[in-house]
């Protein structure tokens, strides 16, 4: 009897998972706002991805990996861009988790994004895995 209950529970879990495999909600006003901020910033960050100054981290953030690729006078500004981008990315992961009613998904969403940013990075950009930077 107990086993039956367990099986029923398992079936329910699988069923709920199947239901959850639809689409994630990403069209809330908060997510759109964060997204458009990141989109505007991308124009400024893109040359730094290309030069290798900024790389895509393994944890879904961006990192200033080699500031020497940027003229000295501009390094502070790039530090600022990286800080703002990471604040937005953290907010994005949190908001997606929240918009889908599962704040506890934040870490999973961050991991998924981390993989996708790296997978989708353009050739020549630097990406991080296992603490090591490599050029795509």
């Amino acid at each position: 009897m107990n086993a039956l209950k367990r099986i029923a529970l398992l079936a329910a879990l699988v069923a709920s998972a199947a239901w959850a495999q639809g689409n994630l909600e990403i069209n809330t006003p908060a997510i759109s706002q964060i997204k458009s901020g990141m989109q505007a910033r991308h124009a400024q960050l893109a040359p730094h991805y290309a030069s290798g100054a900024v790389g895509l981290g393994a944890d879904g953030t961006v990192a200033l990996r080699d500031a020497s690729a940027v003229p000295l006078a501009q390094r502070q500004a790039v530090q600022g861009l990286v800080a703002q981008e990471n604040a937005d990315r953290a907010a994005l992961y949190r908001e997606i988790a929240r918009a889908n009613g599962h704040p506890e998904w934040e870490a999973d969403i961050r991991n998924t994004f981390a993989q996708r940013w790296i997978e989708r990075a353009q050739p020549g950009w630097y990406v991080q895995s296992g603490g090591q930077w490599s050029r795509k």
Binding site: A67, S68, A69, L72, R75
Partner: peptide
């Protein structure tokens, strides 16, 4: 001078 990460540097 420059540190490896370029965040402590002078020119």
């Amino acid at each position: 001078f420059s540190s490896a990460d370029g965040l402590r540097a002078a020119e």
